[in-house]
Design a protein around this nucleic acid. Structure first.
Lengths: 335, 335
DNA sequence: ATATCCATGGTAACGCTCAAACAATTAGCT
DNA sequence: AGCTAATTGTTTGAGCGTTACCATGGATAT
């Protein structure tokens, strides 16, 4: 790597002259600036990032901690975060907590040594289950900015980006009711997560409010240990009258559709299905799955924006929570 | 952030004493070491990463550039890279080239300023199409280590991790031939990529070698602009006799399976399908898709290992190419 | 008293920026 | 013309947080 010192030596000027010249300081003569810049370009000079960061105490790097890259939602959020961060001149250091509290603690700890200017993260499943947030508070207490997205924790005083999980599920359930469905089942493999609970509550609320709906709500909670396909398929034998399915996670809606088709259900005539999936699964379904679209890209983008605002602000201000609108997109699996 | 200086002041010793104490230097008295360490722990002292990097000229950070996080293959590779890097004490800075040459050039440029110790990357589609590798050579010339994976370029002198694309497709085609298939079609949406071409060649070679195979090979190349589902579906009308399909990309195998089922093909009796997909799509198929497994996790892991070896080595040595074994996993869509 | 050891302190350097100092030129004033 | 004042262009020096090397001081041993 070529340094200011080397440029200075070659040009027979001092280091600071070179530095100022490259930064277009008005103190430096026009011709000198020219000479310096030419040599710099010629030698492909790049200011050393570490030196800059050390001096300015700014890294222009964000730490991003997500629970699982293989989950399409988080992959897309990561994509959006990377795009927006890059646009704003930030790099991202990515860590995958793998849904583990210990890994999350570790990543936070390791990056809190001046590696990043702030954190964007979504909380690991284990962390949410154990409701353990000390490691996050510790970071916050040190004055490090943090933006939580999707899986947040209400107790933490920091910026957040969420969707209206309750409302989205409520609306989708309402839609099924309006279609005249009388036996609406909810499937969830995220019942342990904050967002999962909210969605389930939205479903329950919608059913409760409907005086003409007689059935008891049915919540099928699938855990990691379960065989998703088996559990979903079993629904059709244990609950023969099912005529509406709301899946509040990424995959179970698609699985339900496949299983239902295999069992000969007419869709959407006899059975409606609404999923919480991203567009990417559509290519694997026929008819196309109706979904609640989370606008994942906007979620990631907003998280970065909140972070950048926070980093640019002079005085402290109250935490902000951005709620991204969801949209019920009706396709082939609803009437 | 608490610094050595602050510790030193509180303990009434010099900065260098604190530094040495924390590094267990034998020069320092036992009791002093104790005192220093206690305070350090108490104040949660973390050595400043930037200062360390500046001093040692090592960042313990790797730059990872992938073409597309939404592609499951790359997401999984990224996951593996992150896991292994973390295990080896490295952070990763992730950039997504979005299949664009310009973004790739940009990321390489931006991180070549001392931000990372080396690069792990897979080449963007545009870059491969235009066969433009100057930006990569430039990095290599500066002595920055680089490991290419999956989408590599033979001309570049650096470490590589690949799979035997030719052999994998060859073997899969052989399998279809051994089943007695007489009209085997290849579907590919990566015909423009090095790996795509190799796979196609493997398919062609297998057909050529079989003297009893009379048909002309049929390669269906799908581009981004095409509607994958339409193109695949059309195959069944334009090529009524098809009894074997080899999909060499991530998704078209699953789509072909769905379309074939919808058209009433008996699978695997009348039609065999082999895909190049990862396990994750299996939940969306019935019968389960037979696939060529790429061992994506091993690919990522190996890339990191090559990189770490390279970084630890004293003297320069020849580039290494690691080939990860593939495995033909027969499931429900083959006899 | 001199050599030997031990514990600690001081300094420089990594690459950079910024404030302040300085030298050299030009302008302003009697 | 002669002297100060202002302007311009450049260098010096300190500091960001570390560590490595060298120096220093006091105690102990010879």
């Amino acid at each position: 790597m070529v340094t200011l010192k080397q440029l200075a030596e070659q040009l027979n000027v001092s280091v600071s002259t070179v530095s100022k010249a490259l930064n277009n300081s008005p103190e430096i003569g026009k011709d000198t600036i020219q000479r310096v810049k030419e040599l710099a370009k010629h030698l492909n000079y790049q200011p050393n990032k570490m030196a800059l960061s050390l001096k300015s105490n700014k890294t222009n790097t964000l730490g991003v901690i997500i629970p699982d890259v293989l989950n399409h939602f988080f992959a897309k959020a990561l994509y959006a975060i990377e795009m927006e961060a890059s646009k704003q001149g930030y790099n991202i250091i990515t860590c995958v907590s793998n849904e583990l509290l210990s890994k999350e603690e570790n990543s936070l700890q390791l990056l809190s040594n001046g590696s990043v200017d702030g954190f964007i993260m979504s909380i690991a499943e284990e962390t949410q289950k154990q409701n353990e947030t000390d490691h996050i508070s510790r970071v916050l207490d040190r004055g490090m900015p943090m933006v939580l997205f999707d899986r947040v924790c209400d107790d933490l005083e920091c910026d957040k980006v969420i969707i209206d999980d309750f409302g989205a599920a409520y609306e989708a359930t309402k839609h099924l009711l309006n279609e005249g469905r009388k036996h609406i089942v909810l499937i969830s493999d995220i019942e342990k997560l904050s967002v999962g609970k909210l969605r389930t509550n939205g479903y329950l609320k919608a059913l409760q409010e409907d005086v003409s709906y007689k059935e008891e709500p049915v919540v099928i909670s699938v855990t990691k240990a379960d065989d998703l396909e088996k559990v979903v398929d079993h629904l059709f034998v244990s609950n023969k009258k099912v005529d509406g399915i709301l899946s509040v996670d990424n995959t179970s809606g698609v699985v339900a559709l496949h299983k239902a088709l295999k069992r000969g259900y007419k869709i959407p005539e006899k059975l409606s299905i609404i999923g919480f999936s991203d567009d990417n699964v559509l290519v694997f379904t026929e008819p196309k799955l109706s979904t609640i679209s989370q606008h994942t890209f906007d979620i990631g983008k907003s998280a970065v924006k909140l972070m950048v605002d926070r980093l640019n602000q002079k005085s402290k201000s109250e935490p902000v929570t951005t709620t991204i609108k969801t949209k019920l997109v009706l396709r082939g699996t609803t009437k």
